[in-house]
Design a protein around this nucleic acid. Structure first.
Lengths: 76, 76
DNA sequence: ACCCATTTGTTCGTATGTATG
DNA sequence: ACATACATACGAACAAATGGG
């Protein structure tokens, strides 16, 4: 999945993966994406890197975050 | 006790302290160690740091946790 | 059945320090 | 100088489990 050697930044690689999981319907609207801790385990990335990715997807309008709850896929 | 300046991470320093308290018999088998809130006050550390330490000691097999009750020193 | 206090579990937000390319 | 990435640490909110009244 993630290529730590390649030229593409890890946070961008993860963003691409999550975009595709949303696209595929693996992650669905109004339902939470995996937690930061979970994504850390799943992809072997540091917390800061996950948070970076989340910021990117929020800025893209793909997800929204509720502190203390999770990050959710936006409807539509 | 805890040296916030030193090179050793705080959660590791606390782990060392608790290991020693168990070793000394200050904390005894099948009896709870101080609560997270108590350890926070005693050592002036953040909740997350205490939880980190607890995870470490659980992984070492020194203590076990009962949610809603506390963390207990393992027998033997 | 209900409330309440205590305790641990989980979640994101933010900041700092270090290291690498 | 800058971006990326990791580890650590503090804070805050929400959640679940336990036990007492």
């Amino acid at each position: 999945m993630i290529d730590p050697e390649g030229p593409v930044p890890l946070y961008q690689q993860l963003a691409a993966i999550l975009r595709e999981r949303i696209e595929r319907g693996d992650l669905v609207p109004n339902r939470p994406i995996p937690s930061v801790a979970r994504l850390q385990q799943e992809y072997g990335l540091a917390r800061g890197t996950i948070l970076h990715t989340v910021r990117v997807l929020v800025e893209e309008g793909l997800i929204y975050v509720v502190p203390g709850k999770g990050a959710f896929v936006k409807a539509r």
